[in-house]
Deep mutational scan, measured.
Amino acid sequence: MEVRTIKVFTTVDNINLHTQVVDMSMTYGQQFGPTYLDGADVTKIKPHNSHEGKTFYVLPNDDTLRVEAFEYYHTTDPSFLGRYMSALNHTKKWKYPQVNGLTSIKWADNNCYLATALLTLQQIELKFNPPALQDAYYRARAGEAANFCALILAYCNKTVGELGDVRETMSYLFQHANLDSCKRVLNVVCKTCGQQQTTLKGVEAVMYMGTLSYEQFKKGVQIPCTCGKQATKYLVQQESPFVMMSAPPAQYELKHGTFTCASEYTGNYQCGHYKHITSKETLYCIDGALLTKSSEYKGPITDVFYKENSYTTTIK
């Protein structure tokens, strides 16, 4: 009895394709271990004539594949690729409408935090270190965002349907971005203890939790000093293409032309909904596939993004 075979390709990165001759009487799992086709788990399936010449994702289970996976995804987590594939199996079914010149995501599976993050990423200057993220990001900007969303979920250790947080998501993504040249110098002034300067680099240099107003941050924000008295913390120097200011959701007025974009969060910790506000020729609110415009805006804002380049204080 002759062994019926077909020729397929296996890959971990969709760049390096490895030619395989597979036995049609055995499952993919018996031949390769966990195997995925377009995100779908085909591990328990036997090869079919229609699979001839198709590319299958496999887990990096030998040295060659491990090197290829690390170079593309910059992670050695053995569960990463499987999590990416199972997320992709959902995100490829989502709709990605162009809204006001940006790629958004039609609401499904509690994905409003991903839509808000995706919209924000198209408006701030950011370059990702893992080629996987950078490639998928370019495709997302062009309207094909399924891979990018699935990668975000995998890097953030999230599953489809789980509630997510924009600030946490951005923080994970910033860790995989090139923020080497970003720098922030802060000064804390206390009447009792004097003053202390701190220099922050990388992710810490672009994120701040405690106030939404970048102007206020430049002037000074009140913080408790270690001595128990009130101290003032203010920005001395900022070198970065953008800054992200966050605070627990509270009524906040966004003035046209003073910011790049913002995240609105309605609801409580267990259950809520994100919308995205962007400042173009007027203010726009993007909620999944829905767009509304207004000249002014007041609502429960939790993150505001500002364009920056270089700032030095005039406070002496």
Score class of each variant (00 low, 15 high):
230 Q>S: 11
229 K>N: 15
96 Y>I: 05
47 P>S: 05
308 E>Q: 05
91 T>F: 06
185 V>W: 03
257 G>S: 05
21 V>A: 13
164 G>W: 05
146 A>S: 14
201 K>Y: 13
78 P>S: 13
167 R>W: 07
41 D>R: 09
172 Y>Q: 11
295 S>C: 09
33 G>H: 12
237 Q>W: 07
81 L>C: 10
277 I>Y: 02
188 V>N: 10
196 Q>T: 14
177 A>G: 06
264 E>A: 11
214 Y>H: 05
61 N>V: 10
287 D>P: 03
171 S>T: 15
33 G>Q: 06
98 Q>A: 10
219 K>F: 04
227 C>T: 05
80 F>C: 02
219 K>H: 08
249 P>N: 01
41 D>N: 13
55 T>F: 06
64 T>P: 12
198 T>V: 14
263 S>T: 10
162 E>D: 12
48 H>A: 13
237 Q>H: 15
276 H>F: 14
279 S>I: 00
42 V>W: 14
27 T>K: 09
167 R>Y: 09
74 H>D: 06
243 V>T: 04
200 L>M: 13
123 Q>G: 04
50 S>Y: 13
50 S>L: 15
238 Q>A: 02
19 T>Y: 10
105 I>G: 05
253 E>N: 10
44 K>T: 13
204 E>K: 14
302 T>N: 00
64 T>Q: 15
11 T>C: 03
231 A>Q: 03
226 T>V: 15
48 H>C: 11
196 Q>M: 11
42 V>H: 13
112 C>M: 06
182 C>E: 01
21 V>N: 12
59 L>A: 15
29 G>K: 08
74 H>V: 02
232 T>G: 01
136 A>L: 04
61 N>A: 13
7 K>M: 14
178 N>C: 09
225 C>H: 07
78 P>G: 05
219 K>M: 08
293 K>S: 14
241 P>N: 07
95 K>R: 09
224 P>N: 14
41 D>M: 10
51 H>C: 05
125 E>Y: 05
15 I>R: 13
166 V>T: 07
202 G>K: 08
187 N>L: 11
141 R>F: 09
130 P>Q: 04
218 K>T: 05
210 G>S: 03
131 P>Y: 07
116 T>R: 06
130 P>V: 07
149 C>I: 12
275 K>N: 01
142 A>L: 12
37 L>P: 05
40 A>C: 15
109 D>N: 11
114 L>Q: 09
258 T>F: 01
43 T>P: 05
237 Q>Y: 14
287 D>E: 01
17 L>R: 06
220 G>T: 04
196 Q>F: 12
209 M>A: 15
221 V>E: 01
240 S>W: 01
285 C>I: 15
311 Y>D: 14
167 R>F: 08
211 T>E: 15
259 F>N: 00
91 T>P: 06
208 Y>D: 01
94 W>E: 07
132 A>D: 05
19 T>N: 11
90 H>W: 09
117 A>V: 13
122 Q>F: 02
214 Y>F: 08
145 A>M: 06
215 E>Q: 09
92 K>H: 11
137 Y>N: 04
61 N>S: 14
270 Q>I: 10
284 Y>L: 12
133 L>R: 01
226 T>D: 12
154 A>R: 00
191 K>Q: 12
62 D>I: 08
200 L>P: 02
314 T>Q: 15
38 D>H: 11
306 Y>D: 06
292 T>Q: 08
208 Y>E: 04
132 A>R: 10
69 A>K: 13
187 N>R: 13
201 K>L: 10
79 S>M: 14
28 Y>V: 06
158 K>S: 01
315 I>N: 15
9 F>E: 11
270 Q>E: 15
102 L>V: 08
106 K>A: 15
92 K>V: 11
48 H>S: 12
181 S>E: 14
174 F>T: 00
165 D>G: 04
25 S>D: 15
232 T>W: 10
77 D>V: 07
152 I>K: 00
3 V>W: 11
303 D>T: 00
136 A>M: 07
